[in-house]
Design a protein around this nucleic acid. Structure first.
Lengths: 252, 252
DNA sequence: TCTACTTTACTAACCAGTTAGTTAAACTGA
DNA sequence: TCAGTTTAACTAACTGGTTAGTAAAGTAGA
């Protein structure tokens, strides 16, 4: 028995696995750009270079394909994140590293963030969809690890004595908010908030600020921030920035 | 000449103004719950208690109605926010107050936040829509005021010397992220993250954390946080929490 | 000969927007 | 003061474009 068959519903050959991969990639693109309702099955088929009927052959429905795409990208993201937590370093340093990793991951791959935002809004409306699974398999383990990391840091006296969730929210929230509102900053700030230079500066500021905010000894926080930044280069920014996805408009 | 006629497109009688108000309220509800694409004109009409054609009589199109609804609620929010900035207090205290005010505003009225989130995603896709106007009339003045407030605080030595934008992002980001992911926390945390007690605790933590993070003198930050919290009671939480909006499903 | 895939043509639903008409209040002039 | 006229506010029923999903028959490779 093979190891796959997690996401797809049909067949199991090499060829079909490859095709499913192409479809999933196209689906991630289309869904992250247009949302579940806004995405067009024809567009996904066209980008994947296959016939529309094939989407229904492999994944039974639009929702099914959506779930599969969501699961694929989430698993990827989880594995990348968990790696940060497991480094050999003090809890405080790992908190800084994970904040930086989060920043870089959003930079390098917008799709996950975009899909999550949409999924949050769907969850709000009670259309849980594929989220239940993700919560158990992706978010719960990540959060548990984060929690024990921060608690360890508080217990050892390295970090200030505050709610561990607050540190988590402050780290992630700042990044998510910045990228979420990116187009707003573009209009509001007198400089381009997504030029490589400005991004590098933001990255620094995020980590330094966190260093000043959460460490008992602010000087140590600043030093660690410096160290973490020094050995983590900023990822390449993808060039396909703004026009990401295709608009679908009704004709008049 | 009358003062109104800003949002609506037709007539100007008392009766029509009242009807337009009802339609706009219904529209805010439906659009914030379902997004521009997901909202149903039939549903808005039904909630407003009028015929669908009347929506087209008063506002020419779905997009037009959307813009009008967005503008109405944004103006409301801006006025509430500006009030915080203008209090007679030190810059640092006003920063704390505005963070708390932001938290409370999201609590008391989810619609604005929800609409903004959606509008951010549309902006990303280049469908700027009504946002250009809002940026000039709502966000630009708020941001300018915030910036000078923080800079004043840094200049006087009250606040740490960091990018003013970082303080802004950290304050707002934490709140936005918490409420955006509310349903996720509901599943992940061992307690209800939206019970009045937990919310009160979050509110405290947010302000205290900011006090510790941005003030040169941490003790002063803690004291000011205490003071600000003491004279700002938490708003009532609306009871119509989770099921906000109506789902639209295709029939099989 | 089976699995993976294509092609073409279709349907059923959905939903923004329109049309053609109704109601009632306000205005007009003799 | 009231019949006649206009106009703003509103409705019921329909139209037409769009799109998820299906059906059925066929092709290519291993």
């Amino acid at each position: 028995m093979e190891i796959e068959a997690q996401t797809g519903l049909a067949g199991g050959s090499d060829r079909s696995a490859e095709t499913r991969g192409k479809i999933l990639d196209a689906a991630v693109q289309e869904f992250s750009a247009n949302g579940l309702a806004g995405a067009r099955m024809d567009q996904i088929a066209s980008v994947a270079g296959v016939n529309k009927a094939l989407l229904y052959y492999h994944f039974d429905s639009k929702e099914n394909l959506y779930s599969a795409a969501l699961e694929m990208i989430s698993t990827k993201t989880r594995d990348a994140t968990m790696a940060t937590f497991l480094r050999d370093a003090s809890p405080g340093e790992r908190v800084l590293r994970s904040a930086l990793g989060h920043f870089d991951r959003i930079l390098a791959q917008t799709e996950f963030q975009s899909l999550m935002q949409q999924e949050m809004m769907r969850l709000h409306k009670g259309e849980s969809g594929a989220m239940d699974l993700l919560i158990k398999r992706v978010f719960a383990p990540m959060l548990a690890m984060y929690q024990s990391m921060v608690r360890e840091g508080i217990a050892s006296g390295e970090l200030i004595d505050t709610d561990w969730l607050q540190i988590h929210l402050a780290s992630l929230g700042t990044n998510v908010f910045y990228f979420m509102s990116s187009q707003l900053w573009r209009e509001l700030l007198p400089y381009d908030p997504f030029s490589p230079e400005v991004l590098a500066e933001r990255r620094k500021t995020v980590v330094h600020f966190l260093g000043l905010a959460i460490f008992r000894d602010r000087e140590r926080g600043a030093e660690l921030a410096e160290k973490v930044l020094a050995d983590t280069p900023m990822p390449e920014i993808r060039v396909d920035k703004s026009p990401f996805g295709v608009k679908h408009e009704r004709k008049k």
